Amino acid sequence: MNKEILKKSQSLIALFLLCLVITLLSDKFLTGANLWNVLRQISVNVCISVGMTLVVLMAGIDLSVGSVLAFTSVICAGFLKNGITIESLDLFVGFTVLGAVLAALIIGFLLGLFNGWAITTFAIPPFVATLAMLTIARGATMLYSEGIPISNLGSSFEYIGSGWFLGIPVPVWISIIVVLLMVFITKKTTFGRYIYAIGGNEKAAYLSGININRIKLMVYSLAGMMAAIGGILVTSRLNSAQPNAGTSYELDSIAAVVIGGTSLSGGVGSVTGTVIGAVIIGVLNNGLVLLNVSPFWQQVVKGLVILLAVIIDRKSKK
């Protein structure tokens, strides 16, 4: 019983020890301004990572979330600032903030749906299918933006990423809503139980009458939409859509999922564990910056943390 409790609490213990070490090494870490900054920064990774959690629970992977984030970012910014012009019809369609946000979410959903369609229709391994989407979406981002940032999107849109509501940053509120929604889906719905069943034993799930392909389509679509939410948060915080946004974000999200205790083999894990994993990644990034560690060493440390988390996962499975 004690071993089981210790196993479930290992992410929280790791977070506590990490915070303790950084606090001892830097007096700037536990300041109110810095802690809010950490929460604001991790809100993007939290949104992406909870979508990734559903994919990994199903024993899949999605390497395209960073590129999907970038593409939906420039689409949202481009629609908001420039609208859509159809010269042949002499037609111009303008977008409100809500319209641009909804367009980005729909496109994120469709890109994720395409991932799921490729995986289920052609039996392509998720690694390969989403790697292809990583390249496609990044190329589409450069084509649409012509490699130039789309800036000055207005104060209303900027409020989404930089504003405060009831004393808490708006991005934090958005990430809380996303997390609560995903916890409800995974814990209280038939759809959530099917995800665990497929990850635990896909053949047994199929023989039980579960529509495997439909569940995979929905999961990858949700992952794409979560990436779009992350893109909206990044773009609104900077008040600018950067064509190179989202680079290596897929690594941070996978790291958060694995550190949070979700097994790469599928069937085991939770959204709340992923949130803890995302906080660990965010605190680690923030601590390394406060300690003036070289960005190159930051990548090395992050890679080692991911490797350690996977090793622990494999040991736990045994």
Score class of each variant (00 low, 15 high):
residue 7 K to N: 13
residue 176 I to A: 15
residue 297 W to C: 05
residue 154 G to K: 06
residue 40 R to T: 13
residue 207 L to V: 14
residue 31 T to P: 06
residue 239 N to A: 11
residue 161 G to M: 08
residue 177 I to V: 15
residue 172 V to E: 12
residue 208 S to V: 09
residue 195 I to L: 05
residue 306 I to F: 08
residue 232 I to H: 09
residue 259 I to H: 00
residue 97 V to A: 10
residue 85 T to L: 15
residue 21 V to S: 01
residue 219 V to L: 08
residue 23 T to V: 10
residue 244 N to E: 14
residue 295 P to R: 10
residue 176 I to F: 12
residue 101 V to H: 08
residue 239 N to P: 07
residue 288 L to I: 01
residue 72 T to P: 01
residue 105 L to F: 15
residue 121 T to P: 02
residue 104 A to M: 10
residue 283 V to I: 15
residue 276 I to T: 08
residue 12 L to M: 13
residue 286 N to G: 04
residue 15 L to G: 06
residue 188 K to P: 02
residue 159 Y to N: 05
residue 277 G to W: 00
residue 111 L to P: 00
residue 65 V to C: 03
residue 265 S to W: 04
residue 17 L to K: 02
residue 219 V to R: 00
residue 167 G to A: 12
residue 156 S to D: 14
residue 99 G to L: 09
residue 293 V to R: 01
residue 188 K to V: 11
residue 260 G to L: 01
residue 116 G to P: 04
residue 295 P to G: 12
residue 309 A to H: 01
residue 47 C to K: 05
residue 275 V to S: 09
residue 181 L to Q: 12
residue 26 S to Y: 01
residue 161 G to K: 04
residue 190 T to S: 15
residue 109 F to Y: 13
residue 102 L to Q: 06
residue 185 I to H: 07
residue 70 A to F: 02
residue 38 V to H: 07
